[in-house]
Computed example of a mutant assay.
Amino acid sequence: MSIPQIPITKDKVAVQARIKLSKARTARKSLISGVYIVVFFLLVQWGISSWYSLDRLYHYRMDYNMFKDNPRNVDVVLDAMAAKIKKNKLTDYIIILGDSVTFSTPVRSGDSLSYFLEQEIKQSYPGAAAPPAVFNLSIPAMQSGDLYTLLLKLDERNISTDKVIMDVRYSSFVARTPDPPIVFWLKNDLKNANPATFGDIESQLKQNGYKAGTAWDRFTDFLARSVWSHIPMYAYRDFIHRDLLASYNKIVKGIEPDDVLGDTRPWYEKEGLAEMLKKPEYMSGFIDKPFDMTEKNLNVYMMNRIFEHQKGKHTLVFMSGTNEELSKEFIQTPGYRDNLKRLDAYFADKPVDYVNLQGAISTKLFSDHTHYIKEGYQMLAHLLWSNWKQ
Rank of each mutant, 00 (worst) to 15 (best):
V164C: 01
L152M: 05
Y148L: 11
L147Q: 15
D167A: 15
D155N: 13
L137S: 02
Q143I: 03
D167M: 10
L137K: 02
Y148F: 13
D155G: 07
M166H: 02
V164T: 07
M166F: 10
G145T: 11
L137W: 00
V168N: 04
G145C: 11
L152I: 07
E156W: 04
N158E: 09
S144N: 06
Y170F: 14
Y170W: 10
R157S: 11
Y170Q: 11
N158T: 09
S144M: 08
D155E: 14
N136G: 14
K153T: 02
Y148P: 12
S138M: 01
L150F: 07
V164G: 02
I139H: 08
N136Q: 13
V164L: 07
M166L: 15
A141Q: 12
A141H: 10
G145M: 13
L147V: 06
S160V: 12
S138C: 03
Q143R: 12
Y170K: 08
V168K: 00
S144D: 00
D167K: 09
N158D: 12
M142R: 04
Q143A: 10
D146M: 01
Y148C: 13
T149L: 09
Y148K: 11
I165M: 08
I139E: 07
Q143G: 08
P140M: 09
T161L: 00
S138A: 15
V168H: 06
S171N: 02
D155K: 15
D155Q: 11
V164K: 02
R169L: 05
L152F: 02
Y148M: 10
L150E: 15
N136L: 13
T161K: 06
P140Q: 12
E156L: 07
S172M: 07
Q143D: 04
R169S: 08
D167P: 05
S171K: 07
S144P: 00
